[in-house]
Simulated assay, not measured.
Amino acid sequence: MTASIVVLVSGSGTTLQALIDACADPGYGVHLAAVGADRDGIEGLARAERAGIPTFVLRVADYPSRADWDEALATRVAAYDPSLVVLAGFMKLTGEAFLARFGGRTVNTHPALSPSFPGMHGVRDALEHGVRVTGCTLFVVDAGVDTGPIVAQRAIEVRDDDTEQTLHERIKAVEREVLVDAVGRMVRDGFTVEGRRVRLGRTPTGR
């Protein structure tokens, strides 16, 4: 039976589209069970609906507290029994309740080579620092901001004429490739998180 993923989005869903396209190929071996969002009316949800994928929306403003929203999000995602949760441009930090259920099997991307330049402005910060090489990082989500164990990274040269926009566009193109490749491998072949190391493939005991 093909293992499932749930993808959470907040915006246009270009990374989601890469996963939708990949999951349409039976050889990829991953079923995209649902797409969730923290806001209505976004293109990410429209992409999922056009592909016939179930969607749901949980807005923080509709809950008494952020913790209540986090608990509701965890419950809703759990209904699809995913092997992996993918944050694809999801602009909310997951909290204790969510990590209690999905810690160790939720992944996110960051447009820099972690641990450098964490936070919302990784591309801008790298440019301002004057680095000659930056890139993207896929990591297992923990309670910090872009601090989780690293699954995969890809380096990208910074050009002399780069702006934040041009650099970010090149990073995003590579980011999608890295995410699709790694998510497929994690779901098909399994993975383990041992401290700061993520090992793809099942252990000799089959775990």
Results as ranks from 00 to 15, higher is better:
65 S>N: 08
19 L>G: 01
52 G>H: 09
104 G>N: 02
198 V>S: 10
89 G>H: 02
114 S>N: 07
192 T>P: 12
25 D>G: 03
141 V>I: 14
170 R>W: 11
62 D>Y: 08
88 A>T: 06
97 A>S: 08
38 D>N: 13
190 G>D: 13
152 A>Q: 14
148 G>W: 12
86 V>R: 02
33 A>G: 06
56 F>D: 08
119 G>R: 04
175 E>G: 10
139 F>Q: 11
19 L>P: 04
78 A>N: 04
36 G>A: 07
28 Y>C: 02
28 Y>Q: 04
19 L>K: 02
48 A>V: 06
36 G>I: 05
31 H>N: 13
206 G>D: 07
200 L>D: 09
139 F>P: 04
11 G>V: 03
78 A>D: 09
32 L>A: 04
158 V>T: 15
37 A>T: 03
111 P>Q: 01
63 Y>E: 10
3 A>E: 13
2 T>E: 12
164 E>K: 12
88 A>E: 07
142 D>K: 10
156 I>D: 10
172 K>I: 13
179 L>E: 12
106 T>A: 00
148 G>L: 14
83 S>W: 08
59 R>W: 11
65 S>D: 09
202 R>F: 06
195 G>Y: 11
191 F>N: 13
151 V>E: 14
17 Q>T: 01
191 F>G: 12
42 I>G: 11
148 G>K: 13
6 V>H: 04
25 D>E: 10
88 A>I: 05
75 T>E: 13
203 T>C: 09
15 T>C: 02
48 A>N: 05
130 G>V: 11
3 A>H: 07
174 V>L: 14
91 M>G: 06
151 V>T: 15
129 H>Y: 15
3 A>G: 08
18 A>I: 04
63 Y>C: 08
123 V>P: 04
74 A>W: 00
177 E>N: 11
132 R>F: 07
21 D>V: 05
95 G>H: 00
142 D>L: 12
46 A>C: 03
40 D>L: 08
86 V>T: 02
68 D>C: 06
65 S>V: 07
199 R>W: 10
110 H>A: 00
174 V>T: 13
149 P>Q: 15
177 E>Y: 11
27 G>H: 05
8 L>F: 01
74 A>C: 06
103 G>K: 00
186 M>Q: 13
